[in-house]
Design a protein around this nucleic acid. Structure first.
Lengths: 109, 109
DNA sequence: TGGTTCATTCGATGATCGACGAACATCGAA
DNA sequence: TTCGATGTTCGTCGATCATCGAATGAACCA
């Protein structure tokens, strides 16, 4: 058990331990899909604070944790700040073409 | 409202009305993924009764309904029998490469 | 006309999920 | 050391989901 509030989350599992269902589940939610598309558009990392969505901070943190656990996203800390980016290389190694194909699919409506 | 037990389900939405989240949600469940893989291996339709999984009939019917609504699968009736097949052509038209890419990803474990 | 098989629907149950506010840990700055 | 900013975790709520057994209806057969 990890002490409360102490870990700063940030577990980045090796993709060999991630299965397809986990990735699809992570992507199969509108808010998380928005986040992934946003990161893909930036083609780089984005500051946590700049991920502006109409949800509470705690909810955003929750979604990012799910994306992290699915190997889709990674966090990097710099001082008190946090930057988020896609793990597109790693992901493509484990599930070739998956992220690219999904992102190539037409936007929700 | 459809009268009880009378419709035989079988709604096959045009894929233009299906969005990506719906398809990913349909695929992001182990039992449904097994069904889709099973159908893909057969490369043709499979009799309902031959979809042997350790779940109740009603549960299988439920999963097939979700796959139908997501445009992933279609049903065909012949007498009292029912045959299930992938809508891979239609699906590929709407979400190019998606099904193929997902099926190309390694099996669960 | 019943009886059988087949698939769907109903209704209930327990589990999971997304959402929020509050509390908390961490780090840099005052 | 105290303070403010930044993300995470906790606890909780309501909604959705997977599952089952039972009831229902549809098509065929005897």
């Amino acid at each position: 058990m990890v002490p409360r509030g102490t870990s700063r989350g940030r577990e980045h599992p090796p993709l060999s331990e991630v299965d397809l269902i986990t990735v699809l589940s992570a992507l199969a939610e509108p808010t998380r899909m928005r986040i992934v598309r946003m990161l893909a558009e930036f083609d780089g990392e984005r500051a946590w604070k700049d991920i502006e969505l109409p949800i509470a901070q705690s909810t955003l943190s929750h979604h990012l944790k799910i994306l992290r656990n699915a190997g889709v996203v990674q966090n990097r800390t710099e001082g008190t700040r946090c930057f988020v980016s896609l793990r597109d290389q790693d992901l493509d190694g484990r599930f070739p073409g998956l992220l690219e194909t999904v992102l190539g699919c037409s936007d929700p409506q």
